[in-house]
Design a protein around this nucleic acid. Sequence first.
DNA 1: ATATCCCAGCGT
DNA 2: CGCTGGGATATT
Length: 696
Amino acid sequence: METDKKIILDIVPLTRVSLRNRQFFSYLPPTTFAQDLNSKNPNVKNEKPDSNVVGGKSDSEVPIGSLVSIPFSNRSIEGVVINSRLNNLQSKPASPVGGFKLKKIGKIISENFVTENQLRLANFASSYYLSPLGITLKSFIPKIIKARNKKQETKDKINKKFVKLTAEQQFAFKKILNTKYKIQNTKYLLYGPPSSGKTEIFLQATKKLKKGEQALILLPELLIANQTIERLKNYFSVSEIAILHSKISKGEFFQNWEKTRSGKAKIIIGTRMAVFAPFKNLKLIGVEEEQDVSHKQWDMNPRYDSRTLAEKLSEICKAKLVFISATPRVETFFRTQNKEMELLQIPALGKSETETAIIDLRKEKAVFKNKSLISKELEKEIFWNLKFGNQIILFSNRRGMSQFSYCVECKTILKCPKCDRALVYDEDGFYRCFQCSFKTDAFPKCQKCQNIVFKNFGQGNQAVEREVQKMFPSAKIRKVDFESMSAKGSYEKLIQDFTDKKIEILIGTQLSNKGWDLPGVGLVGIINVDELFQFPDFNQDEKAFQFIVQASGRTGRFGRKFKSKVLIQTYDPENFIVKTAAANDFPKFFEKEIEERKALNFPPFSRIIKLIFQDAKFEKAEKETKIAFDNISRISKDNNFKVQENLDPMVPKVRGRFRKNIIIKLKTKEIPPELKKYLEKLGSGWIIDIDPISII
DNA sequence: ATATCCCAGCGT
DNA sequence: CGCTGGGATATT
């Protein structure tokens, strides 16, 4: 009965298994020699005494990394084989824990589906982000679908017009390409103003890789994917490029995944999920817009940061790592000073042809008696730019007509019943919630006094649109925000319309501030820069700085005849961040910011863990968080870390559930074991977010 | 995801 | 005392 020799497979089910438990389960291979010894009906044909030795060739063998289906509490789910071992007397410690009758796996869906390097990365991600291994591994498993229309790979000719690099660009290029890989020696920050040729340097480096070597480019969002891919086609044929992001079809995605595995893809370009691909021989990784928060998955498990995983991946694959940015994160720049990364600074091409001015809105109101959203100066510049046929971008981060609306009787703010967030008056006469899709009917009543008259406070981008249209009735204006961009292909259409000059004035939010190449822009206006500072977050100043610099970078080049302009409207013209950003003085900003981070013990001087508890009942959310806070406080006494008082989060209610936060600041790189153990035991209502992008 | 186990809360 | 619903727990 008890066989002394049989193969046991350790398999990670692709489902949530509580972190306090072991993350894998043991199974027997499908119909095998070993299994036959157990069964009533031995199959003599397969009897080869040594056939079940791990590493040998056998039909009972299931290679590590295989995707299989397994029975798991009365149902069949998928799992990944992470170990294959002999259950003989010698390897007893690794044997299944006593008492279990091992089940047989179902069918083998795909052998060797997950590579060893992927398993290494998955293990790292699982333990770093305290995310169940099965959930983490799911990110490594695309839907296996054959691409439907296998269009003949057009024998596309590569445009061999390499842009000639300047001396400084050449230096960075050679440094990246010629330095021999070393773990602490080949991580770079490629830093230079917008359109200084940073991407060009990286692309030319990928082109010079040896035969069979692969490069990965991570982009923060789909938005800039298309234009980057177009640039790639100057260097590579379509068959050498693999695109990995969520907006391409499942079939095409899988095809590209396999292209990455086989090595047919020389360059892999994608959003954060692309770090999970089965690279054959990855030697170079580029992270575009390294400061962009979209590199972090903050809304679902695993809550990973592709920058952190890219770095780990670079160590696993012995690939060089290049972070690329015009406005790097404070954390990243700090690392270049620490010599953890090497700074490769690229100067601007030529002199700046952009003039930046800060406009004092207090003066505008007091002296010029101008109550409009648009200052006289901005109005004048819009006028001239329209006249010269230049395009204009105006940034206003608030959507809708108002910031919030309140009852004229009792001053109660009109809020979303589901999210508790202020409703925003929309131009169609309804009040909307921008957190969920809630919309009031035409005549909402005040929750407190049932009155139906509300006053709108503050102005959003709709108000900006209305006002600008009134000033310039014949101007072709387009408002861009989350809603107008959600339809498929709307982004491409917008770019096309803009390039075709069907749009003269673009009114946008943060969304339209991505690395676009829009050469016709003569004027960028920030309607109210102060709204960038209203959130009390640890990196809010950094985000504001980045936004202003990036927005300024949207202006085109017109030569000496016409200087493009950036106008920043503010009620606080002495604001340090606004001033340094307007001067594009990152070093000065960094110097002050790093001191503040140090004083307040924020990253890079600490690591943050954000715990979120959510529940439909407010009392429960309060109680749970209180208990957890007290427990963690106790643990913190002996473990050299800090816990912050429970804050009321920005969004107290999400999809009908109340939220509460706890912020932990670690002084060490590793999570203290006692804390880690506690976090792993947290119940299912908890969300653990390691290195969060915000603490509110 | 889902079955099952445990127990508080309630009715008999 | 038994029944029931909710919540926590284990799944090889």
